[in-house]
Amino acid sequence: MSHHPSSRERAPRDGSDTPDGGRIKVGVSDLAVATGDETVTTSGLGSCVAVALVDRSTGVRGLLHAMLPNGTGTDTGIERPGKYVDTGIETLIAELEAAGASADRLEARVAGGAEMLDLTDAVGPRNVARAEQCLDAAGIPVVERAVGDGVGRTVRFMADGRLVVRAADGFERTL
């Protein structure tokens, strides 16, 4: 057998081909869009921030797990817009629109951005601040947030638009 070069790019790892009712896992510096009844999850949010956007009238949802606030002026991250809060939110909005959402109807839930370590000069709070700023600029209201403190979090973005946030100490709340 032979493996020939082709110009076809592989689809991004957004799990959009996952069958309905399944689970879509979003890794660090990653984002995913769901249009069915999948649960979109991301785990181990420390200083990283998760931004969950939903258009309730179409049910189109998306989740971003970004690591750093600003993509502009950096020399990495070309391959992964989800690495940064700003480029990640921009890309997520574009992908949601492509999947049938209307940017005017999007609402946001934000989780993570913990201040995990003194060593790493408050990257968590800066991630949250950048997310709020970008969402505000895009005219997307932040309806709920579970951010800051010194605690890691895992989130599940449900088909009905709720964001279930579980903290490292086991405390769970639904946004």
């Binding site: 181990g44 949010l45 420390g46 995990m116 010194g150 890691g152 490292a168």
Partner: peptide
């Protein structure tokens, strides 16, 4: 903390 959160 959660391992991945601690190293992130």
């Amino acid at each position: 903390d959660i391992g991945s959160a601690a190293i992130s």
